[in-house]
């Protein structure tokens, strides 16, 4: 018997729970020769801003044990070029494309949300709140519940599409953040973005990354992500999307047990561009072998 694999995130119906994570899958097209995009649940595009952003100086990336640090600096083409150059491809694929975006003021967030709302090819919106608020001395929106709520409320007012809020793990209490975002109108929560880290070149006595610090991703962060998904899923009613170090179907299924309704695959796509598809297929095979009829029965089904 073929297990039922579909799940819902807000009003978005996914053929299976596996998506690709923002910033690790370009705008979809880059990977189309390696992955059958119609075998994954959805893909999330690179974080967009109102104006194109150049990003940070190099080195921007370094491998660390079981993971990698990145300080890309949110380089992206900007919303206008996105509409002109990237949206036509999204139209050609029969898989929902979720647009990830960020701003530096709540107004910028709202403007982006309303512009993305108008694009039929964009199935849902994912707000990245791991950005500094320039109006309030650069405090990262996602590290202050009031700041985060103001951004989410501004976006909520600007779109009827499914609004996913992506939480930063660089906080003391992720549950407090999750609840603030839910109360402000989030339809779902993505947990987690990268953890701030650092690498040092001993002989040169310098930081490896030009930006000094960067975001840690990959298998090294999986236990932390799993814990945060578990904590958040218990505390909110909206669906949680589990992200962080997912490399295999087993990893993805563990996130679902912890309470995730869907998952996103990030760094794994660099290691194996077909990872998201292979994970979706592997999950289905796992369920079939154990005669589990519906993947939804696994969500939050952690025992003990």
């Amino acid at each position: 018997m073929k297990p039922a694999m579909s799940v819902e995130i807000g009003s978005l119906k996914l053929r299976n729970p596996v998506m690709t994570a923002s910033g690790t899958f370009g705008y979809g097209e880059e990977f189309s020769q390696y992955v059958d995009l119609e075998k994954i649940g959805a893909f999330v595009t690179k974080g967009l801003s109102l104006k194109p952003r150049a990003g940070n100086p190099t080195p921007r990336i370094v491998e660390t044990p079981g993971g990698m640090l990145n300080a890309i600096g949110l380089q992206n083409v900007g919303i206008d070029a996105f509409i002109q150059k990237k949206v036509p491809f999204l139209r050609s694929v029969n898989t929902p494309a979720i647009a990830n975006f960020f701003g530096y003021t709540p107004d910028e967030y709202a403007e982006l949300a309303s512009r993305l709302d108008a694009i039929p090819e964009v199935a849902a919106l994912e707000v990245n709140i791991s950005c500094p608020n320039v109006k309030q001395g650069g405090i990262v929106f996602g590290t202050d519940p009031n700041c985060a709520a103001s951004v989410v409320a501004a976006c909520r007012a600007a779109t009827k599409k499914t609004l996913i809020v992506k939480l930063s793990p660089n906080v003391t209490d992720i549950v407090e953040m999750a609840q603030a975002c839910e109360a402000a109108g989030a339809d779902a929560l993505s947990v987690i973005n990268t953890l701030t880290g650092m690498a040092i070149d001993l002989e040169r006595r310098r930081p490896v990354l030009a930006n000094i610090t960067g975001g840690l991703s990959g298998p090294a962060i999986k236990p932390i992500a799993l814990r945060m998904v578990w904590q958040v899923a218990k505390a909110v009613k909206v669906p949680v999307i589990g992200i962080g170090g997912i490399m295999s179907a087993t990893d993805a299924l563990e996130f679902m047990l912890a309470g995730a309704t869907a998952v996103q695959v990030g760094t794994a796509s660099f290691v194996n561009p077909a990872a998201a598809q292979e994970i979706a297929e592997g999950m289905e095979a796992w369920l079939a072998e154990r005669n589990v009829a519906d993947i939804k029965s696994l969500i939050g089904a952690l025992e003990g």
Binding site: G23, T24, F25, G26, E30, F31, Y34, K46, G55, T58, P59, R60, I61, V62, M68, N70, I72, Q75, T267, S269, F270, P273
Partner: peptide, 13 residues
């Protein structure tokens, strides 16, 4: 310094 080799990570610029 490359992570993906296909224009997605923007690490290698």
């Amino acid at each position: 310094y490359m992570a993906c080799g296909m224009g997605a990570c923007l690490g290698c610029v």
